[in-house]
């Protein structure tokens, strides 16, 4: 039961990461790319959650917590600098 759910979830996450990579490749502005990369980080964290669920361990919990903060810092920094560069 759990294995089937994890397989279905893993396929969904793979499709979602392909979609986000397409947006990173295509994105007209750097803000779209930052947004898509942020979503990719969330997808990686979700995949780690699925892995912890199926293998019954908690090794990746710290990375999930750190990834939450990293995505925030990255997107805020890039949006800050893009507004400066465009106007200078």
């Amino acid at each position: 039961m759990i294995e089937t759910a994890v397989w279905i979830g893993g396929v969904m996450l793979a499709l979602a990461s392909i979609a986000c990579l397409w947006r990173v490749f295509k994105g007209p502005s750097i803000l779209d790319r930052v947004l898509a990369l942020d979503v990719i980080l969330l997808i990686i964290s979700s995949a780690l959650c699925l892995d912890m669920a199926i293998n019954r361990h908690t090794d990746y919990l710290l990375f999930v917590v750190v990834a939450c903060t990293l995505g925030f810092i990255g997107s805020v920094t890039v949006s800050r600098f893009v507004s400066d560069q465009r106007n200078a």
Binding site: I8, G10, L13, I43, S46, L50
Partner: peptide
Amino acid sequence: LLVVGSLMSLIAGIGLI
């Protein structure tokens, strides 16, 4: 819960496209 939680990521990917 696991399937619906992953479905949210798929929805985000489709929305981004």
